[in-house]
Amino acid sequence: MMRLSHLQSLEAESIQIFREVAATCEKPVLLYSIGKDSAVLLHLAMKAFYPAKPPFPVLHVDTTWKFREMIEFRDRLAKELGLDLIVHINQEGVKAGVNPIDSGSRLHTDVMKTQGLKQALDKYGFDAAFGGARRDEEKSRAKERVFSLRSAQHRWDPKNQRPEPWRLYNTRKRPGESFRVFPISNWTEADVWDYIARENIPVVPLYFAAMRPVVERDGALIMRDDERMPLLPGEVVQNRMVRFRTLGCYPLTGAVESSAATLPDIIAEMRASRASERQGRIIDHDGSGSMEAKKQEGYF
């Protein structure tokens, strides 16, 4: 008999989830964060609806502090794939001068990312938002359903999640309620890279090792992507061979020293690695329950 390979069965599961949303929700949107998980998410969406285009737009909630290469990559990809791309920036946050350096990671993430996302979802009236979160990333994500119901205020109730047996997803909701839908819930970081290699999916070059200007700050290597990031006393910008395992706001994203400049290098490095990918993410370290608290407030 024919048994699907590991990646084939993950791909089939994800495509089924995409189609279920398209068939049962009124106004879906794909949340695109430009990273490798988003790249896989978008690729799966293109496959799920082929030869049609995905029947929903792509939304990027821009905190204005993403790496410049990420924005360039986003705009080019949207053009090449003919995507309906919506970019949303929380203008109130910008006016209030919220930024990751003076406001701190927690406030910046809350205002520019979480509140920004809620604004955009409310503004366009989206009732289902695809996200590229994976259960292997973080403990509270490991507990979340594929179809995660959010209240009209976008809150997640982790103690009262709907049972999700087999592949039968209950997509009914009241007006105002919405779903966060995670088609790659069951993928690991290794699966994502293996799939990127198998399908030849373009990703932001920041994932590949190159000489980049970084400073050492609180034990992390932070790339100084533009002049907005002031140097602290004693800090020196050094050019080092680094790459990123995850991508976020540049002042909050630590690089790792690496010489992995190709996909096979990255995959080999990751298989040998003894540190989890979110290690470089400063926002996760506010305490063990911090991601759960953010998610309850509406963070992805």
Binding site: R3, S5, H6, S9, L10, E69, E72, F73, R76, L77, E80, A190, D194, I196, A197, R198, N200, I201, P202, V203, P205, F208, T262, L263, P264, I267, R271
Partner: peptide, 21 residues
Amino acid sequence: ALLAVAEAPPAAIAPRADSLL
């Protein structure tokens, strides 16, 4: 070059565990 970063032939990467349980 920005988009065509995945130039290395995927065949160079040995599959990890092939079956899923």
